[in-house]
Structure formats: C-alpha cells, structure tokens
Design a binder for these strands. Structure first.
Lengths: 238, 238
DNA sequence: CCAAAAGTGTTGCGGATACACCCATGG
DNA sequence: CCATGGGTGTATCCGCAACACTTTTGG
C-alpha cells in the first residue's frame, strides 16, 4: 500500500496488411528499460481527455490519423509489474489502417511483421506489448467473420481477389474468392463501383471493382444460434 | 493539464436471473454526490493488485465471491466528467451469479431489476453506471449464443425447462426448450446427470436433470462464416 | 488458339427452427 | 382417462462451401 506513483497510459496496436502479411506499427526504444525492443505507440492519459480521445492524439504523433480507419478498445492491462519501477495501467486499443495507405512515420518507427497462429505475435516486444498485439490480432480475426470490419483493411475501392488476399493474411487460412464475394454481397456489405481493373501482365479477365457500402463497424451476424423466433434463416441482420 | 488528482476504480456489474428477470447487484448511495442513487460495487484499485484481482476483492465485501461463477472485463470508462469533482477512471467488469445462489448482502445493497431491450438498463443509477449495466447486459446476451456462458447463470443441476426460463429472461425473447436442448447437447455442453426431477403439482412427465460439462468459458461457435477450408459443417468447435 | 484470371451456376451438406407426435406422471 | 408437462422424430429452410463451367482478357 505504499504511495507509489501510479499513472495511466494508452497504447495502440495499429495493424495493417501489407504484402500479404499482417504488420503492427511499433517504435524502437532508445532507452532502458527494454532498450532496443519494440514498443507500441501511446503515452500518458491527460486530465482532460478520455482514453478514446487520448489514443487518437497519441497516434497523431506517429501517423496521419486520418489514415486510421477503425479504432476500438481491447482492454486494460494492469499487472503491477508490467512496467518496471512505476505503476502504469494501460488501456489498449486496436487500430486498423487500409492496406493502400502508407502514412509517413518517424525514423524510430516501423511496421513490424506479426506472426499468424496462436503464439507470440511479434519478436522483441517491449514490456507486455506482445500480449496486446496478440489480443489485437485475435480480435481482428474474430470480427472479420461476423462484422463488416474488412472495410478497415481494404482500400476504398478494390477487386475481389485483392480483398481475398487481405482476408487470407488476416485470418491465416485460405479463403475462396468466390465464397467471399457471395458472403459479403449477400449481406449487402459490398457494392460494385461499375468500373473494372485492367488485367495483369499475363492476361485474364478484367476484375470488377467494388467498395464497402459502409465504412463504420456493423455487426452482420449477431446471433450464431438461438435467434429470436420467426427469423428462421434470415440471419438477424439488424 | 492541471495537477488534478486522478485515480483508478474498478466496478462490477454482477448479474443474475431471478424470478424470470435479470437483476444487477447495486448499493444505494448515502452521500452526495448522487445521494439515493444506485451504484455498482467497486472501489479504488490498490498498488499491488491488477484489476482482475481488485474486482474480486471488492466483490468480497458485498457478496460471497465463491458464488460468482464468471467474471470478465467489459471495458474502460474514462470520461473526465464521469464522476464530479475528481478524475476517476473506471475499469468495468461483468460478473454472473447462478440463479439458485442467494448470497448474503449488506443492508444498503439490493438486486435491482434490469430492463430488457435497448434503452436504459436500470432506473436511478449513479454516475455513468447505467451505461456499464447496459454493456453488461449486451455482453451477456451476445455470449449466450456463441459460448457456453449459460453455466454461469444456471444452478449446478437443472432441468431443460428451468434452463430455458433463464435464457428467455437473459435474451429477452422466447426460446424453445426443444431447440435449446438440441443446440446445447449437439455442442456437448450439456450432460444428463441420470436423475429426474419430480413433476409439479399439476402432474406431467418428470424432467431429466442436466448439468453443464464445463464450468469455465468456452467459445463454441468461433466462426460464423469464412471458416477454414475442410471444416465444412463441423462448426469449428475448437 | 491457348493460358490465365474473373465471375456465375449448381450441387450437396449440415445446422437450426418448427411442429407433430409419443411418454410419464398426477388427479 | 384426461390434462399437463417432458422429450423425440421429422420436415423444411437456408446459408455456406465446393467445384464445374463460362466469360474476358493477353500473348
């Protein structure tokens, strides 16, 4: 019960898919503790802001926040020993940046690759930041399948196969372009722009260009089972 | 940027179903601010505990924590003005108590009814505690349909129709006992104890008694769509 | 004309709901 | 023997995954 100084920080695991691989924005610490290790962007919460405002402010120091398509709370990390020396409670966020955005970032900052699957998400993470990145990766995976969260990974306009590649990288398993298109159009998440993309150097039919109808999070599959009566196969798209 | 004293509190929305209605544990404030209004149990986070430990400690002051079958983080509530005068950040939790448990509670504390549906969850809530109860109610509803969370609402042993009544109250819509049993047994969440419950005063066939196979949270329906290939109808029960 | 990429048609499977029907008990 | 509540069998629906097939381009 010592009167150890306690503080509150906000951390953001900002993810994007680039070159078929999930990445997280991190900066390399230039001081002890954890010198040389990779830390998530963030910082102290101010008196006059809530954590949602704070995370946007902190991110603005690293990237152009207009590029961040979606932000949501992940949870609180509060182990008394999570940062040596001080008592620092962290509220962690998931942020998503579309794959075509390439915001300018500071010199000490880089996009670090995220391992798929279950284990540690990034190598050389500072403090408990790997736990946070894992939570972010898992949250993204889960929400891709029952929300329209794909909008936050994709460019404003895209072909189905480009979108498929994003889902493959984020989910960590193969995804059929055919079925992806059907699932997303059935739920009215996609709409064609009308234009087509030119085929690649080896030919092939030009791909139709789509966009997401909404660019804000929407739950499209609220009830897996135990739907309210009378909604038999209607999927409860509220 | 004033050096206003800031603190961290932990709050718990402890829910149970009683008499076919969801209820939340709350205590009536005896001081300003918000005198007479209903507040969630909780209190200051100590230096040597994380929020998970803290919420269990705080709950121990109100109820027998052994009765609490499940606890999980809901999120951070950090509006600078959420509590007048001081800067107080709250980490909120959802707690669940089985319907047959009736723990002793202090005089100022009571089980307050929760409104179903969308609007405000309880009347006369202190501070932003209604928002927290709403979040708890929504979380419970969502997880009932894709996890085994029912175990935290139900007694250790129960009949299907008793379980159905719990689901009806928690979900806010009718649930068929037939289908509830099939869904839960197909997913191997229920097992029969072998015994039967005596019929009511008006007769009827004696009901078989069941229990949940697991009494810890398990996700039973991870992928609504976009399952990994080769898992066609297998439901991905990992 | 062939290869490559995109997109559509079609089939099959399986879970979930709904409903009809059988079972066991009290009065 | 009837009413009441419990439980099972079965039909239907519908979404999704899988795959065959057609379309449109480049070489």
């Amino acid at each position: 019960m010592g009167a150890r100084e306690t503080g509150h920080e906000v951390l953001a695991a900002v993810l994007r898919i680039s070159d078929g691989q999930p990445q997280v924005l991190a900066w390399q610490r230039a001081q002890e503790p954890d010198l040389g290790r990779w830390a998530l962007p963030g910082g102290r919460l101010r008196d006059d802001e809530d954590v949602e405002r704070s995370v946007l402010r902190q991110l603005a120091e690293k990237v152009d926040v207009r590029e961040v398509a979606h932000v949501e709370q992940l949870g609180v990390f509060s182990d008394p020993c999570r940062v040596p020396g001080v008592r620092l409670i962290a509220t962690a966020f998931l942020g998503l940046v579309p794959s075509d955005a390439d915001p300018a970032i500071p010199d000490d900052t880089a996009w670090r690759p995220i391992a798929p699957g279950e284990g540690p998400a990034i190598a050389g993470a500072a403090f408990d930041h790997d736990t946070i990145v894992s939570a972010a990766r898992d949250r993204l995976r889960a929400k891709l399948s029952y929300t329209n969260l794909g909008f936050a990974l994709a460019p404003r306009e895209f072909t189905i196969s480009a979108l498929r590649d994003l889902y493959v990288a984020a989910l960590g398993h193969s995804v059929s372009a055919t079925n992806l298109q059907r699932v997303l159009t059935r739920r009215a998440l996609l709409e064609p722009t009308g234009s087509v993309a030119p085929p690649g150097p080896s030919g092939g039919r030009p791909a139709a260009v789509f966009r997401f109808t909404d660019r804000a999070l929407r739950v499209t599959d609220a009830f897996a089972v135990l739907k309210p009566p009378g909604e038999h196969g209607r999927g409860a798209v509220t």
